[in-house]
Computed example of a mutant assay.
Amino acid sequence: MNDFRDAFVYLNDPFNWTRPGGILDLLVEHLTISVLAVLAAAALAVPLGILIATTGRGSGAVVVVSNVSRAIPTLALLTVFAVTPIGFGPRATTIALAVFAVPPILTNTFVGFRGVDADVREAARGMGLSRGQVIRRVDLPLALPLVMTGLRTAAVQVVATASLAALVAGGGLGQIITLGFGQQDYGQMIAGALLVALLALATEAVLVLVSWAVTPGRRRLPFPPRRRDRTPAGEPEATAVGVPS
């Protein structure tokens, strides 16, 4: 418990937050690396997923790319980059995290657009919409929930994994953990881990709200309140398929 107390003391020291290279500066570095990595992955994966889903060609490549990308550890990529012109630093970390973020975005985009009812597309074409208009006005709104789920999953994974940037002079909150490890200061290590975990949870919450705001259709609360069970005694409770009870 002394280590957790030390972590609490570390996080409540204003100097640790405001000094040059402190928590606030490291937080900005961490978010910059993460945002750039997710945007780069989305810029590649979303158009590719749309293209594959709408043309019906190369669907097997989605599985291959997804599996291969997930099988490559981010730390291994950073080690490989160290002996290439990419070298160490934020650029190497951003590229490695972008590769790590591609699979969930690509897979969810492909599944979302592939799952759009063909009859809906045919009806839109019958109304005179071009292929591009069908994708923008029909496919995208219907596939958007799954696309946003892929982006949210990738973003949370990237924020959590960006701590590895500290191992290759890339900055970020991981520096607090590595510095604490080097000094055998377990309180500081726990403080860094808590900051990364809280940032990942905050990222999840923010993107849930963004997904709720941009998804067309009837608005429902992104965090619905728990309903009280009103099932009469002795009667079985009905549960919708695919919805946890």
Rank of each mutant, 00 (worst) to 15 (best):
Pro232Asn: 07
Ala76Asp: 03
Val159Pro: 03
Ile177His: 03
Gly112Val: 14
Ile190His: 03
Ile135Ser: 12
Leu44Tyr: 08
Thr74His: 02
Val214Ser: 04
Ala40Pro: 02
Asp119Gln: 15
Ala92Gln: 03
Ile33Ala: 12
Ile105Cys: 11
Ala40Phe: 11
Met1His: 13
Val38Gln: 10
Glu122Gly: 05
Leu194Asp: 05
Ala42Asn: 04
Val214Phe: 04
Ala200Arg: 13
Leu164Asn: 02
Leu151Trp: 08
Asp25Ser: 04
Ile177Ala: 00
Thr149Phe: 08
Val243Met: 02
Met148Asn: 13
Val102Ile: 13
Val120Lys: 08
Gly128Thr: 10
Leu221Ala: 13
Val62Trp: 08
Thr74Cys: 02
Ala92Met: 02
Gly217His: 08
Leu26Val: 03
Asp13His: 08
Val241Tyr: 07
Arg131Trp: 11
Leu144Gln: 09
Ile72Gln: 02
Asn12Gly: 08
Pro244His: 12
Leu201Thr: 07
Val102Asn: 01
Phe4Asp: 10
Arg220Tyr: 06
Arg131Asn: 09
Val68Arg: 11
Gly89Ser: 05
Ser163Val: 12
Arg131Thr: 15
Ile105Pro: 03
Thr55His: 03
Gly171Met: 07
Tyr186Ser: 13
Pro141Gly: 10
Asn16Pro: 11
Thr55Phe: 10
Val158Leu: 08
Val28Tyr: 06
Pro90Phe: 06
Leu198Glu: 01
Leu164Arg: 03
Ala160Gly: 06
Ala191Pro: 12
Phe223His: 12
Gly22Thr: 06
Ser34Arg: 07
Ala76Asn: 10
Gly112His: 05
Ala166Val: 13
Val241Asn: 03
Asn16Val: 10
Ile50Lys: 09
Ala238Val: 15
Ile105Val: 08
Leu75Gln: 07
Glu204Lys: 07
Arg125Ser: 07
Ile72Gly: 01
Val158Thr: 09
Ile190Glu: 06
Ser59Asn: 15
Leu179Phe: 12
Leu207Arg: 14
Leu221Gln: 15
Leu77Gly: 07
Met148Gln: 10
Phe81Gln: 00
Leu195Cys: 06
Val63Ser: 15
Phe110Lys: 10
Arg91Ser: 15
Ile190Trp: 02
Ala101Lys: 00
Phe100Gln: 02
Leu209Asp: 04
Asn16Glu: 04
Pro216Lys: 09
Leu31Gln: 00
Pro104Phe: 10
Arg19Gly: 05
Ile72Glu: 07
Ile105Leu: 11
Pro145Val: 14
Ala213Met: 09
Asp229Phe: 00
